[in-house]
Amino acid sequence: MSFRTILSVVGMSQGDRDVQVATDLCSEVGAHLSVFLVAMAPPPTGRYETLAPAWLEHRDRCRQELTEKVEQLRNRLASIGLSFDVESIFSDFAGVGYDIGERALYADLIVVGPAACEDEDLKRQIVAGGLFQAGRPLLFCAPGKTATLKPKTVLLAWDSRPQAARAVRDALEIMKAAGSVHVAMVDPASVPRASGDEPGADVAVYLARHGIRVTVDILPSTGRSVAAVLQKHALEIGADLIVMGAYGHSRLREFMFGGTTRAMLDETSFPVLMAH
């Protein structure tokens, strides 16, 4: 997939850093930048607080600040000469994911900047709306390393599941332009319905047919989590980007008990492109 429209979902108080990351990515690939500025209404703390003048005044101030922030962003981006648009939403927390999903239908990629990665509430809403409702790939740009859509080395986390295959298709153009792609498999099972007799061979052949320079790396977990193994290997090979499928188990199960997706979102310092 070529990324012609990149959506950056940003929060009110931390938008500048994330917009800059998205701006740099759009400039790198010549994409249109669509900024979606999200302001979540403060939740009432009491049964009748929604009728209290102080609470209503606070909501009005939030709306005014949102209007001012949109104008500031438009002026800032206009001075860069980048193709862009800026939209905003003032929403109750419960409805934010739906609003993000509606907006994400018209984007090729959603960028989750460093500040959004650190905001658990906003990050959860972006995943719900962008990944599950709109079915768009998400690029998580965690603090610690500069994100790029032109990586030299890509680590593809492969587990022979449909989610991983979707990530491959979404990142195909990125991997075709990369210098090397490492297909990383952690404790793969050599069974016909999973990885076949030679784990990783099928996806390696598929990638090679697209002209991708690919290496298959079989990694033992030795008691470590899959996320820890992948991150260590990404460091060892000098990866610029990790590509992986998201939520092989149910979202509820991973939210309650943890899983590779959640661990990668919470712990990695590498940019991660996820698809579902």
Rank of each mutant, 00 (worst) to 15 (best):
L109T: 13
R136M: 08
A115L: 07
L109K: 09
G113K: 05
I126H: 08
R124C: 02
Q125A: 15
G135W: 13
L109M: 07
I110H: 08
A116T: 12
G130A: 02
F132S: 01
E118Q: 15
D108P: 06
A116P: 02
D119N: 15
P114N: 11
D119T: 12
P143R: 07
Q133F: 07
P137I: 03
V112G: 02
V111Y: 02
P137W: 10
C141S: 06
R136Q: 08
Q125C: 03
V127A: 03
F132H: 00
A116K: 02
C117K: 10
G113S: 10
P143K: 04
P137M: 12
D119R: 10
V111N: 07
R124D: 05
P137V: 04
D119W: 06
C141H: 08
L138T: 01
C141Y: 06
D108R: 08
V111W: 01
L138R: 03
A115Y: 02
E120M: 09
P137T: 09
P137L: 13
Q133C: 01
D121W: 06
L139P: 06
F140W: 04
K123R: 15
G135F: 08
Q125T: 01
I110G: 08
E120R: 13
Q133D: 15
D108V: 07
I126D: 15
G129W: 04
P137R: 09
E118Y: 03
L139K: 09
K123L: 15
